[in-house]
Amino acid sequence: MKILPQIKEIHEEMTEWRHRIHMHPETAFEEYQTSDFVAEKLESFGIEVHRGLAKTGVVGTLKSGSGNRAIGLRADMDALDLQELNEFAHRSQVDGKMHGCGHDGHTVMLLGAAKYLSETKNFDGTVQFIFQPAEENVAGGRVMISDGLFEKFPVDSVYGMHNMPGFNVGEFAVRKGPMMASADFFEARITGVGGHGAFPHLTVDPVTVACDVVSGWQKIVSRNVDPLKSAVITVGEIHGGHTTNVIPEDVVIRGTTRAFDLEVQNMIERRMAQVLDGICAAHGATAEFEYDRRYAPTINTPDETDEAIAAAQELVGEACVDTDVVPVMGAEDFSWMLQERPGCYIMIANGAGEGSCHVHNPNYDFNDTILPLGASYWARLTERVLPKEAA
């Protein structure tokens, strides 16, 4: 691996930063200590700091040369509502919260790159270092966009990165086009007429209606989605009734849908509402339906993906960069930034084998070994996208 020497020198310092953040995890829109730490570091590097977007977001602006092009580099800062089971010294000090997805490492890799770029200024243009809150569950990236991220901090392209357990250190994975799916969430409330379980003919049973609705929704994927495209409709919750011999008045159904294609996403929402209303009407029940488009599909644009691939290959070689990784049905709110600007979302391997585990696991920990590699990727990507003309 060709780690940049200036970044290799601060590996120990970066590790200390990461452990500090890991010990003090903060969840969505409560990243006060983390954003304070990020802002203090950026200011110490001589980078202009802006705060307040999406409540706890931080943006650092660094200019070099006379170029008018700009690049956005994004890292997420939030932790999970999860009890950590690790016993090492830097384990979470906050009960019920932990950095179980590696956002502590993402934050530090971007800070390391910020320090390097502020010292070398081996680029021509503007870098916006975007430290985003609330990636988990509530899509803080969407909030940053609605708060005017790219109007206040214009960029020509934007880039994101996430760690990937299960792959060997020194590897990257990426692809052009869909990288991750959308993640929408829904709630349906079916209201019937409750009554005694022995006299169902005097009721409108919302439980049996709900069963038909769930079955009908599954046929959307099998009969309305192009077989060459992908989609998921998952019902994760059904709530109704309080005892065995009473037909309840209503039933609530909640779940999630996934798709890579905007047209498929639109169709799923439309058809779910139609199926729900139609089945309820046929049985004499009524329905309320809420559909929350929380995460858009993460779709990498071709030219920006080429730049990301080239930067990664410079560091680890062609053989260690998978340029056609299989897309996954997981979701990422960096997608909202990619809807506004061209860009690329890449995976950096977090390690495989004994001791490694996947994200959102109470035994997970970000691999400090890859901190300088991730920072070097950000640095080389910036130098490639915003090249400094030779003297």
Rank of each mutant, 00 (worst) to 15 (best):
F366T: 00
Y295P: 08
K55M: 12
R51C: 05
P362V: 08
M161E: 14
D156I: 12
V325L: 14
P227V: 08
H22A: 05
I253H: 09
K176T: 12
L62W: 09
K97V: 11
V252N: 12
I220V: 00
I10W: 10
Y377R: 00
I130C: 07
V59S: 00
A75D: 11
G353H: 04
S35A: 06
D124E: 11
E16K: 04
S182W: 14
G72K: 00
G57D: 10
N350Y: 06
I47F: 05
F334M: 00
S64M: 15
E9Y: 07
G60P: 08
G102R: 00
H239S: 14
H242T: 07
W217C: 01
T369R: 13
M180A: 11
E307S: 14
I279C: 10
A79E: 00
V214C: 13
A310Q: 06
H239M: 11
W217L: 06
E318A: 15
E136W: 01
G177Y: 09
L85N: 12
N122K: 12
G216E: 09
V158S: 01
D76V: 07
R91L: 10
A375G: 05
S376V: 00
E383G: 07
K115H: 04
E16Q: 04
M267A: 13
E26H: 08
E237A: 11
A188P: 03
I47N: 07
M23K: 12
T382E: 03
A259K: 13
P154V: 13
I346S: 12
E171F: 07
H162Q: 10
G67F: 06
M1Q: 12
A281C: 01
A210F: 08
